[in-house]
Amino acid sequence: MSAARWGDVASYALFALLAAFFLLPFAWLGSLAIRTPAEVYLGAARFVPEAPTLDNFGAVLSDRAFLTYLWNGLKLSACGGALALALAIPAAYACSRIPFRGQGAVLVGLLAVQMISPLVILVPLYRWMSTLDLLNLDLSVIAVYGAIGMPLAVWLLKVTFDAIPVELEEAAQIDGASRWMILGRIVLPLARSGLASAFVLTMVMNWSQFLVPFILLERDQDWPISVAIFNFAGSVSASTTQLLAAACLIAVLPAVLVFVALQRMIVTALISGAVKG
């Protein structure tokens, strides 16, 4: 066998090892979620339960509150992603098309604020919102999501806009179109996949967000799923492990499925952003 073939064998051996590590948590979660309480105590002895049951999912989803948490999570992350995009589009367009002094500073500033932990800014934001009576409002959470997601969106969209030939816009300009019209009619339609990538990425980030809703939303019925499972985990015991597993799986699955379905597009956007950045 040639050296390259031996290399392939070694590669596959390494892949198998790594895949086992990355797969184990998902597989175990799935296994626990379809067990009866008695089978939870069998540990790894019976990875696929003798009588797989969907009762755990039924039990979790029949709780009306749980559906509310899922809906809250979806609502907050989608609106937050949309807001981040709305804030980012004009800035990304200016950074891509209008040369101006301080452009580098704006882009570096956007990169720098991404390094600030939401924890740092939430300390004062919580106080202001508390004073202004803005706690427990979806809008407050959405506004913070917009602010947290905007910098990444500007970077991704700038790279997308840079890739669109400027000649198309020049032609429209000669026809007397304003910049806003050009943006809306020509640039944005051509930037569809970049816009979609930025939206999905910010939305997935928001779905994972725990700190912001945990601090700004005090009422249980307003919580998104990420806060709800944390709270739920505090109330489970050994005999309800299978329910926690089912709840975790339900919380994780939407983000993973959306991301996996769209990963080719998103990874391409991230890679071109990484190369430019």
Partner: peptide, 9 residues
């Protein structure tokens, strides 16, 4: 896929 799992989860 592991990357998009929420931190709490």
């Amino acid at each position: 896929a592991a990357w998009v799992v929420p931190g709490i989860a």
